[in-house]
Simulated assay, not measured.
Amino acid sequence: MSVRVVHRVGEAVEVLAGAAGTEVLRYVYRPDPEPFESRKPYAHPLRTLGGRTVTGYRPNDHRWHKGLQMTASHLSGQNFWGGNSYVHGRGYLALPERVGSVRHDGFSAFVVAEERFDCVEDLTWVENGGAEWAREERGLSVHSVDEEAGAWVLDWSIRLTNVRDAPLAFGSPTTAGREMAGYTGLQWRGPRDFTGGMVSAPGAGPFRGADAGELMGTRSPWLAFTAEHDEYDGHSTLVFAHAPENRPSHWFVRSEPVPSVAFSWAFFEEFTLAPGESFAYRYRVVVADGAWDGERVGAYLDGLSW
């Protein structure tokens, strides 16, 4: 099924797919203007082939939540998540001097084919004072557009290299002392009508609403989030999956009070990256029309290669 790309140079990349030419992805690399929100590229909106929006942008509860974005909530004392910073014993504080940013430096690859889109983006992670801390090579791929299944796939990869002369320490609010709040890494924020949706994982769930906390901090190859839309009759499902070679990570997942999922790379324990060293992850997000149960999710993922 055909894929079409519109590159608004200096601003965003828009990917259209399916027979209807639906804009399924807009990747915005010109950062939003507010530094406190941690200025960095993000993907919003994500839409199903049926045109249903499945990401939220700057919700009034967390203005720094923007669709799907790569973050680091606790990185050597800096906050690349955005917004308030967690300080043990004092709670969440507005500390703008801790909020860093991620700079788009360009695309080193940009390939549009009939059935897929692939790009490689070069980025720099910059701490609040202007020092460059890390170089990132980010891969984005849109593929496997399937009208019959009502689904398409976004692959998102990261290779991050420490360019400081000191180690980088990656953590989360949980490693800083707050229980079961290990958010960091690639984070998705759902739209308002996804609040209270159903969450499932292999052999677990579905859990609805507050019960989604049963999967908080767990590990599994994939996690699915299904919700019914306002205005339109019907459901949408997102599936979040790890590549087989990924270092084991934990899920940060909530359905209430806000719908959010993060591939947390430092939920319970910090890890460090020495100067000059790199780490890499590959992730997959399936965007589908309809309410998919675990059996359907598993069968679909088994039919995709990495």
Rank of each mutant, 00 (worst) to 15 (best):
R189H: 09
D193V: 02
R192Q: 10
G171R: 04
G209A: 10
T184P: 07
D211I: 00
G171I: 09
A181T: 14
G185C: 10
G209W: 07
P173A: 08
E245Q: 14
A212S: 15
A201V: 03
S236G: 09
A210E: 14
R189V: 14
T174L: 02
P206F: 09
R208F: 03
V253G: 08
S255T: 04
V253H: 09
A227C: 12
G185S: 10
D230E: 15
E245Y: 11
E245M: 03
G234W: 05
T184V: 12
G177M: 05
G205C: 11
R189N: 12
S200C: 09
G203D: 08
H235V: 01
A212T: 06
R208I: 04
D230A: 15
F207V: 08
R247Y: 05
E214K: 14
D233P: 12
F252M: 13
A169K: 12
L215D: 07
R178Y: 02
H229W: 11
P248V: 06
L168M: 14
R219Q: 15
N246E: 05
L215V: 06
T218K: 15
M180V: 04
H250C: 14
A181E: 15
L223H: 05
A169F: 01
G205Q: 10
R192P: 00
L223T: 08
H242V: 00
R208H: 04
R189Q: 12
S236C: 11
P167H: 01
A176N: 10
A201H: 02
G197T: 04
H242N: 15
E228N: 01
E214Y: 06
A181V: 00
P167Y: 01
F170S: 10
M216S: 06
L215Q: 10
L238I: 02
A241P: 02
G217E: 06
W251D: 07
H229F: 03
G171C: 09
T195V: 15
P248R: 11
R247I: 06
A243G: 13
N246K: 09
F194K: 00
R247D: 14
S200G: 09
T174A: 12
M180R: 15
E245L: 05
G213Q: 13
L238N: 03
R192W: 01
H235Y: 13
E214W: 10
T174S: 15
R254V: 01
H229P: 05
E245I: 00
F252Y: 15
A212Y: 05
F207G: 09
G217N: 08
A241G: 02
G217T: 08
R189A: 11
Q187L: 14
E228S: 13
A176M: 09
G196S: 02
Q187N: 12
A243F: 12
S249L: 15
G185W: 08
S255W: 02
H242C: 12
M216Y: 01
T175Y: 06
S172D: 05
D211W: 11
T195Y: 00
T226Y: 01
R192F: 00
D233Y: 05
P244E: 13
G213F: 03
R178V: 00
L215H: 10
E228V: 14
G177C: 05
Q187W: 01
P191Y: 03
G234Q: 06
P221S: 11
P221W: 10
